[in-house]
Write a protein that binds this DNA or RNA. Structure first.
Lengths: 210, 210, 210, 210
DNA sequence: GATGAATGAGATTTCATTCAT
DNA sequence: AATGAATGAAATCTCATTCAT
């Protein structure tokens, strides 16, 4: 979640800064053209370096995408973990996780675009699979905790439910990414509310009490 | 949702049958290797024809994917429409739509794989956008109908809610497609139940009645 | 020099007529797109037949071009021969040959376009070389005859001179073909006059009498 | 008209030299096989580079041909211009232009072959049209100057006459290119003389004085 | 004769990656 | 570290030609 808005080429950028420059450029370019539609040269150009330099820091174009994913996803995972480890009730935790992801969209739509479109379901890289799984696992844990605490229904398969929750979340992001859902501060707030309402209380008016 | 299991090359296949052969082969190959990982020659080989013939029926590899999507999605849309037009209550309709999609997975996992992985969020083709939107629209209509009938809460944004519902649905499919969720008749039934439970009744145990 | 203006597809065209249909279509298509820019299918379409039929009458695309050239060039050669065999003086004969070619342009610009652009200097076909040579030979004979009769200067290499004459002629045609010289009845007449004036009397005002 | 005979691959060739290497190789290959008969790989092989490098310097095979034409024709045009700007009489200038072209054949027959066969009349590229026109324009100017000075007949259309002159010239070159006229120092000298004699004094023995 | 589905050799072009400087 | 010229595998697409019907 580095500030990518400052893209000017600093002639005196240190080695690490060049690496960042390239990663940030990659996010913008992948977001704009997709992974397959982006050439290594495009990334280098966007970063203001020669394309050969990219291979000094990364072993391949694939590794650039993988790095983008890994570094950012791990940060998200960490924040999920903090929420999950707090002593709030399960439903609040769920809300916290939702907020983290939806608000990331506001801060860095390009990054979310890449995560959702390129990494989410393409079988590009094997390594990510585990990491993505950890995201589901956190949600699943929260749900299971909620069931244990009695705030969530126990008749639900917590694992499947975590997929449903995550899916709803990701679909909203996709809607924004693809430009099919209106974007803006208010819209994000509304989406957050709707998402939580649906997964928490369900669509049904008269609650299904059995 | 043609039966693609019969792939033997019928020497006396009529022209239209060859077209089908190619489309069906494309679904299998795209499902196996992804769109970008599939060569035109792979599709032709799988179909048992020369690769040049593909260009007799389609103008490009892209058009093959587009056709796969268009022809199958329109069939799904039609079935959604039938459910939506029935005189069942809204929650039954929602269940009906969920069933259509989840069971398509069982009948034709390759097709679903392609739909979910290649078409869903890649900006491959412009034309599909409209059609995909129609899927959301049907769900949204059902939700709005439910709100009007009083079976669904009125305080929800029906449009956003339709995205959440569809997202949960698609994520389950993705889990199967990516091999990250266990598959099987029983699992599909359980997923169906969980999905409907979540979006209908919500996760909350004690219904949120204030 | 068949009348190609009547291009309607006669359903009851006899075999020979189909052949003509194809040849005439080929002239139009080659003139429009050049030999390499023309597909066999384009010719067939222009002729209103299936492209497979072309191979019933000709063994290849090359042979179509060769046939166009051969059939039409032999007709021109014949007319050259008639002029050369007449009992007019050599300078009149030269004028006659010039007239034949320039006026062919008026009657059938597509044909001349093909002759000039595709056959003239591409080494497409070996067979034509001889035939083209016969054209030069006729001009050379006329010049030699003129020299023998005393109307033409004897100090000129008749062979080279025939190439110069033919070159001037062909260049004018090329100018029309490429749209770089104005076309029209009057222009053709003026070109005829200029060409004959130059090759006959030369550019020099005060004749070079030594 | 660079010396193309030195084709050995110099490992230390600078970037610009590689570009030249490719252009020179293209001239040889186009001369040998014609534009359509030459594969990009043939050019690269002849130049001793990988075929991909060609696309580093040129955007397409077409652009290679266009560049060959443009760079060489502009040099010729410049030399024409020098002749035209000199203070010689018009007939000497005409001779000068003829010499430039005919002698280019001796120095670089491959280049002339390509110019005559591929560029002259194929409608390959739009850009050349203007440049080719400039060649005619110079000749036309010289003729008009001669008419003004009284050395050339005033009753001739200078524009058309320039086409006739250029056509005679080009046809001689074509004869050599196609191997239909004998080549050699003496032959070139004879051609030069014949060409000038014809366009200057005409074929007629007793000059046409009216 | 006539059709057009089917074939497959072949050509251009792209672009990730390497490496000499 | 940095550059960008150079490489070459690979992929899409074209189209002349064949041939079963």
């Amino acid at each position: 979640m580095t500030d990518r808005s400052i893209a000017r080429v600093d002639r005196h950028a240190s080695a690490e800064e060049k690496r960042r420059l390239i990663l940030d450029a990659a996010v913008r370019v992948f977001a704009r053209n997709g992974f397959h539609g982006s050439r290594v040269g495009d990334i280098a150009e966007e970063a203001g370096v020669a394309h050969g330099l990219l291979y000094h820091y990364f072993s391949s174009k694939d590794e650039v995408l993988e790095t983008v994913f890994r570094e950012n996803w791990s940060e998200l995972l960490q924040r999920f973990g903090q929420v999950a480890a707090s002593d709030e009730p399960a439903d609040e935790k769920l809300l916290g996780i939702v907020k983290i992801l939806l608000r990331t969209w506001r801060n860095d739509p390009d990054l979310v675009t890449v995560m959702v479109r390129e990494v989410g379901r393409s079988a590009h890289l094997a390594s990510q699979v585990d990491d993505i799984g950890k995201g589901f696992a956190v949600i699943q844990q929260v749900i299971e905790q909620g069931q244990a605490e009695g705030v969530f229904r126990e008749d639900l398969d917590a694992r499947l439910a975590s997929w449903v929750v995550y899916g709803g979340l990701e679909e909203i992001l996709t809607g924004w990414v693809m430009g099919r859902l209106p974007d803006g501060d208010e819209e994000v707030a509304r989406a957050e509310r709707t998402l939580v309402d649906v997964v928490h209380g369900g669509l049904a008016r008269t609650p299904v009490v059995s």
